[in-house]
Design a protein around this nucleic acid. Structure first.
Lengths: 346, 346
DNA sequence: TTGAAAGCGTTACCAT
DNA sequence: ATGGTAACGCTTTCAA
């Protein structure tokens, strides 16, 4: 017998029927301890492992959830998936992972593959949550799903996120409060990230409210980490900015690196704040560590939420988590002024 | 018909047999274009999606790979999984994701779940690759697997990694070359990471070779990001060190943060170098970006390798990738000396 | 070129 | 308390 043992083999070995073996596995309580022992012994002897695919075919639910994120190379998404995975592990769910690489064109294919696997539900971070064919499909097929990080306009879609516009509004205001009058935003391309656009909206609103007319925007292809050239004019030109609001932490890291490359120290000569996860700004590198907990928690919450939807106990609804602005750590000072708290800064 | 359409429905709708439908899906070439068109139309009309679980049950291979990493909260693992996912996507493979949270006790359970899914093969980062029951199980059941980041002693196990000891040896030597005579290593607990131990070995070898007797080691629980207290004595005590070699980038980030908290500037007052992925040291934050490419590539290679094993075209063997030591970016200077290249430093 | 039918490993109903 | 058996949706051999 070279192939893997099946329930049939276990049944034969234990001299019982395959129905009984199944019972021992699924309803141990409904079987006498003695019988269970015999079956268990046979399973151990044969190194039996239930073939989940047989079960999945038979049952209506697969106890599997599909996850789609832009990329795991961004720690924010990776960390949220870690949270999903942890929670799934506790619940005995299997996680099917896919990524779109920020390409909206690839989302449908990825979700399709997930649906072919008959996942019970999905957790998705989409390029654009509004007017998205994937969302329409899921709605039409009545597949439970939760959007993570997306903030859809429709209220009848489950979504867990921070308030992106508000986050950017707050961090921009904080920089304005520090005296900045010349600010730029560095953001990912809007087609690849509605968060980027929403955050840019918040940035603009803050500037408008402060009566600052000049708005700089530098858009960056996702995955791009070298901002030395893209930021040259912004940093060294005749009307160089004193502060940069970044749409994501990864961009902030890249922006800081570019500042240094241009001979500017950060903070001091220029200020950079990154927005992401459920915190805003924050020490760039330590933040990557300290943001782990809350971001992971978002993932766990997303799965918990999804489970409610799957069981039909919950209705889709939006959940906006509070964001934190760690002022003093994140927000830099005037160009040329540098009495910053270097002791807590990287 | 509330339930999902099956091949049977498509067959009925198109007036053909389910065998023909199957052929259209799997061997479009073996069916007249006209027939194929009829079937395709029926599939579109019914919104048919093949149930992969049916196929999986029938076929011997599932076209699914299982992945086990300590945690996705560490960007190094996350990035490698991203690489795996990308490659899997190209090959049309499904990725099943699990994590052990650095707990050796949980590895067996996770792998077991993966095997119940009848994955074709596995990619694993284990706490300890030697004398690991998971490895024994996989070997016994003849399931193809590739270790990622682990460097097992046995040569007949597929593994893709950098040379951990050599990396640490190199970075330590570089720091010694800069004049450091008082160095500490900050590492994760050895039970949770054989890489940690291997890297510590390299650290010690470098010190021995330089005739430095005093070896400081601070071990940290994984997930710990606050090193302020653990490093206090090391940084402020009577015989404070001038440099710290960190076992991972995440630890280096945390260590730098702790230095700043103690009023030390990094680099300048103290030096910190992190080891990870296929680079050694390196600018801490930019590195998190710049290390993305090579680490992702490791993941892709791991999957490519695994595919070879699954097809039986390759034999298990170890692959040690070259590591890069980005001197001048990574390695700090003497305590108190600070003419460092701040322009390229975060 | 197409179809009938036998499983794949499991669950669960209905008997015994 | 236990067993026989009909699905679940698919692939694939063998016939027609």
């Amino acid at each position: 017998m070279s192939s893997k043992p099946t329930m049939r083999d276990v049944a034969r070995k234990s001299g019982l029927s395959i129905a009984t073996v199944s019972r021992v596995i699924n309803f141990p309580g409904e079987v006498p301890a003695e019988t269970a022992e015999i079956v268990t012994a046979a399973m151990r002897y044969l190194n039996y492992r239930p073939n989940i695919n047989g079960r999945r075919l038979k049952m209506s639910q697969t106890r599997t959830v599909g996850v789609l994120v832009p990329t795991l190379a961004n720690p924010v998404f990776a960390t949220s998936v870690q949270g999903i995975e942890q929670e799934a592990n506790i619940e005995g769910l299997t996680v099917l992972l896919t990524s779109s690489n920020y390409d909206p064109e690839r989302e449908m294919g990825a979700v399709s593959a997930l649906l072919n696997n008959r996942v019970d539900g999905l957790i998705l971070t989409l390029a654009n949550a509004d007017n998205n064919p994937v969302v329409d499909l899921l709605l039409a097929e009545k597949i439970p799903f939760v959007l993570l990080f997306n903030q859809p306009e429709r209220a009848d879609i489950a979504a867990i996120s921070v308030d992106n516009a508000q986050s950017a509004f707050d961090i921009t205001n904080a920089m304005i409060a520090k005296g900045h009058r010349s600010l730029a935003m560095v953001a990912g391309q809007f087609e690849s990230s509605d968060r980027s656009r929403q955050r840019y909206d918040g940035f603009c609103r803050a500037l408008d409210q402060a009566g600052i007319e000049k708005k700089h925007l530098v858009q960056v292809r996702f995955g791009e980490t070298d901002l030395v050239e893209p930021l040259r004019d912004l940093l060294l030109g005749p009307d160089a900015v004193t502060g940069i609001v970044c749409s994501t932490d990864m961009l902030a890291i890249a922006a800081i690196s570019a500042c240094r490359a241009h001979g500017l120290s950060v903070p001091g000569d220029v200020s950079v704040g990154g927005i992401d996860g459920i915190s805003v700004g924050g020490l760039i590198t330590p933040k990557l560590c300290s943001a782990v907990q809350p971001t992971q928690e978002m993932g766990r919450q997303a799965l918990a939420f999804l489970r409610g939807l799957i069981k039909g106990q919950t209705n889709p609804q939006s959940l906006l988590l509070p964001h934190h602005l760690s002022d003093g750590d994140s927000i830099g000072l005037f160009r040329g002024n540098s009495p910053h708290r270097s002791s807590t800064r990287v």
